[in-house]
Nucleic acid binder design. Sequence first.
DNA 1: CGACATGTTGAGATGGATCAACACTTGTGG
DNA 2: CCACAAGTGTTGATCCATCTCAACATGTCG
Lengths: 224, 224
Amino acid sequence: VVDDELEHLQKFKSGERHVDAGDMVIAEGATPGRLYTVLEGWAIRFKTLSDGRRQILNFLLPGDFLGLQERLSDVSPVGVEALTPMRLCSFPLSGLWPLYARFPSLGFDVTWLVAHEESIVDDTLLSVGRRTALESVAMLLLHLHKRATQLDLATDGCVAFPVTQTHIADALGLSLVHVNRTMRRLRQLGLYALDAEGLRLPNPRALARLADWYGTPPRVRPLI
Amino acid sequence: VVDDELEHLQKFKSGERHVDAGDMVIAEGATPGRLYTVLEGWAIRFKTLSDGRRQILNFLLPGDFLGLQERLSDVSPVGVEALTPMRLCSFPLSGLWPLYARFPSLGFDVTWLVAHEESIVDDTLLSVGRRTALESVAMLLLHLHKRATQLDLATDGCVAFPVTQTHIADALGLSLVHVNRTMRRLRQLGLYALDAEGLRLPNPRALARLADWYGTPPRVRPLI
DNA sequence: CGACATGTTGAGATGGATCAACACTTGTGG
DNA sequence: CCACAAGTGTTGATCCATCTCAACATGTCG
């Protein structure tokens, strides 16, 4: 989707960063001075309350941008944790302004990426607030499968899926146990299959109907 | 907070729009060709499922920007409804790119506004997903009161409050009845008072502790 | 005056939470 | 090679935060 933007942004990179699965890319409460784009791998962006309750805000896949929302205050209010080994394109926060000044079209693209991420969070908020557990899980599986497929991460409709039931629970504001039971229902309905190979959705349209969610047709450079 | 940006953005305006309380600024499913900044008044940004369940994504106050997330696809996936009479600064979508090209710093500010709105939605998602009803309502009241105060809408700690319990329910993914009972508890705890004058928070620090939410110190032009 | 929006309260129902096991796999150190 | 811990998935039993249904009160407005 954003190949073009990615390529340009990389000219500003000051280095690549590699992290392992489970590593924190940005720790909650840290003061990161870097921005990243994801080149490879999956991550979660999350917040936690002081007693440990955690909410996953969204999943980060290749092409996603991170570090901007995190920099609105001195201390990052969110954490970012790798779900798989990752390759990140890194550049300093101080490089952002020159980028806008000299390549306004890239600034434009950054805005687009941020707005796009927000629209995903909007959708999740609708799920968590108003959808039932079954509907929410249906939408999340469909959403992630679709994104991965659009990034060419699918082989024959099957995408590697590093997301555990715990992650799904934390993304949808549900308990682990209830996610487990809900996913059993979806599985028995034949709406998804998951094994070592990855995630498969035999009937995506039924999932979409169930979740009342029909993704947005992707547009490159949609503004202007 | 954003007076400076507002002033510049207004140079691009193609007109002012006035709407009454209850009017739709942007209808769900419409294809708006305009962007707005709020000059005066309150609004909600929301999504609805096809059976009518509604989720408010965030509240729009003076200085907020709208129309960008809405324009990521051909059809606006969200609606915007005025809670009070509003005055909006309007300019055409086609004016956005020239703005970036000729005044990169304004592009920068637009990015900041979008990222800031996302951080608010992030906080709400944490509430809806992981906070209890009492905590969620506490945070919402505190958040709105703080924003209004920062915009100088408070007189003597009291802000006009056009938000009904139905809105709070739809913002927090709760039922109207439960919001009513929850607010009664908060009222009896002396944590808020609401009358024709407006909303008053006698003990904001207790609310913050209850909600485990300590807003971000506002920064103007925080990037660079 | 009635219609409508908003707030309030009670009673009962339920989706989802919590607590508690247990199975399976993987990695690790002795 | 085995014992063990840690992560993940699964299932049953029970509880409760919140929902739904149903009234009713109040204020506003045409």
